[in-house]
Write a protein that binds this DNA or RNA. Sequence first.
DNA 1: TGCAACCTTATAGTTAACTATAAGGTAGTA
DNA 2: TACTACCTTATAGTTAACTATAAGGTTGCA
Lengths: 130, 130
Amino acid sequence: MTIGQLAQELNIKTQTIRYYENQGLLSKPERTQSNYRIYDQNSIKRLTFIKRAKEIGFSLGDIKTLLEMSDKKVNRCADVKDFAETRLIKIRSRIEDLKSMEMTLSDIIKQCSQPNKTAECPIIESLTEG
Amino acid sequence: MTIGQLAQELNIKTQTIRYYENQGLLSKPERTQSNYRIYDQNSIKRLTFIKRAKEIGFSLGDIKTLLEMSDKKVNRCADVKDFAETRLIKIRSRIEDLKSMEMTLSDIIKQCSQPNKTAECPIIESLTEG
DNA sequence: TGCAACCTTATAGTTAACTATAAGGTAGTA
DNA sequence: TACTACCTTATAGTTAACTATAAGGTTGCA
Ligand SMILES: [Zn+2]
Ligand SMILES: [Zn+2]
Ligand SMILES: [Zn+2]
Ligand SMILES: [Zn+2]
């Protein structure tokens, strides 16, 4: 399987696969005598791992660590769990930030719903006032 | 008021203020005869506007538009509201994405809480399996 | 006068995760 | 033998919002 076929299979760009290889997420693949990369089912598995981990919000750096833990295959459950919990905390904190933004924003939008014709726009006001 | 004093007042870097000026968020300020920028209370107001808008999740591009709407001072309430609503929708959508990540992640973490000693780590499993 | 702490400009680097380009080699088909 | 679609490498560009650096001018104070 060439890089192009692998890319199509997973709906990603060939450059992205090479980029992952450079970043150490994928090991150096075998080559044909004409120096083309060759991949197999294992490569699909690994890239699928990466895609799923990205969907759960892990960064490529995180994913590299996860893959290393997965590769080690020894007594890593606690490590993996700690790692995932750290990520979960970050996601929750980001959600809280966004919720706070959402509340503020929807509040001032509501104030704008019955605008006093003679006054400033409440949204602008709330950003401007002391 | 020099740029350094303004920066200190608002707890931002002088470079950031110049950057905002370059991006068109701040108008070109008056200069002393030695070419130093001079600012007044109005500059503080405008930067405070920017800081608050950032806190609500607006990008600098958004904020530029908001400031322009604010500067126009005519019949802009509906425009501002539309704009804020668009931003609110984006924030909500981002929250939903993160919540979905949170659910998936906390689910697999829970599975890892009672790990079967002989099995793979459920977190790794769930990323690996077909 | 000397020196530190400011100010100016222009340009380049940072971060993450790609994405595009250039310049060229290879494989299969008409 | 062309042509097309692949493949290779290295390098640079993208996005957002700064942040740092270099090289030099200005202000205030001892
Ligand atoms: Zn309004
Ligand atoms: Zn586990
Ligand atoms: Zn070529
Ligand atoms: Zn100097």
